[in-house]
């Protein structure tokens, strides 16, 4: 599904964040990426999503090299194959929940009815006409999960999805995220500092200066 080949990335100030990073994510695999602050976890997600470009190396999505795509093609790929979940939810405040969830369907030219199904799947049945301001943080993240999965993406990228939630809500959201990713047959990468969050993934990877390595087994 996803292959990273010898990725290198440094910031404009010259600080190197990713060095010779390689990894392969299989179809249907759900992994958590942990690591110290500033090690480049979010940067890695941005590179995978085509929102940023690597200094060298290559990213393959279903054997298509991201570096071979221009901006429009990368955007189209992102639209069709990726789902995104952010720490700050990024739900559009003036759209109803139905409209927020249906955005990827609208952009992909798909039927909008599935938005209702997803709303129901994340436990917000009958609230399609509500606005984000009427929701709690946990509910907003549920909407974000529904939006990320509504168009049946092949890869879901979640950046600290529970960073703004209390532990109980966070657990519920994480379980929902995992279940929905599995139910939709997608792959997923969750970037987190939370061990509890990482524990919901199939595998946990540690990102460090040396690259991406499996986490040592818990003792």
């Amino acid at each position: 599904m996803l292959t990273l080949r010898h990725l290198n990335k440094s910031y404009a100030n010259g600080r190197q964040v990713l060095t010779d990073l390689s990894y392969t994510l299989g179809a249907g695999e759900y992994v958590a990426v942990m690591g110290d602050s500033g090690v480049g976890k979010s940067t890695l997600l941005n590179l995978i999503a085509g929102l940023d470009t690597a200094d060298s190396g290559d990213i393959l999505i279903d054997d298509v090299s991201m570096s071979s795509l221009d901006d429009d093609a990368a955007t189209k790929l992102r639209r069709e194959k990726f789902g995104f979940i952010f720490q700050a939810f990024h739900v559009l405040p003036h759209l109803t929940l139905n409209q927020n969830i249906a955005l990827p369907l609208l952009l992909n030219g798909a039927a909008l009815q599935r938005a209702e199904q997803m709303l129901e799947a994340v436990g917000l049945r009958g609230r399609g006409q509500d606005f984000p301001r009427q929701l709690s943080g946990g509910e907003m993240q549920r909407v974000a999960i529904a939006r990320a999965l509504v168009h049946r993406p092949k890869l879901v990228l979640a950046d600290e999805p529970t960073g703004n939630l209390d532990p109980d809500t966070a657990h519920n959201v994480l379980m929902l995220l995992r279940d929905e990713i599995k139910a939709n047959g997608a792959s997923g990468i969750i970037v987190t500092h939370s061990h509890a969050a990482a524990a919901t993934a199939d595998r946990v990877l540690i990102l460090s200066k040396d690259g991406l390595h499996p986490a040592p087994p818990a003792t």
């Binding site: 999503a49 429009d72 955007t75 189209k76 639209r79 559009l92 955005l103 952009l107």
Partner: peptide
């Protein structure tokens, strides 16, 4: 701006 950024992320081209 943040709304437009989100639209770009979910798949709206620059054009």
């Amino acid at each position: 701006r943040s709304q437009f950024a989100l639209l770009r992320v979910v798949g709206l081209t620059r054009r």
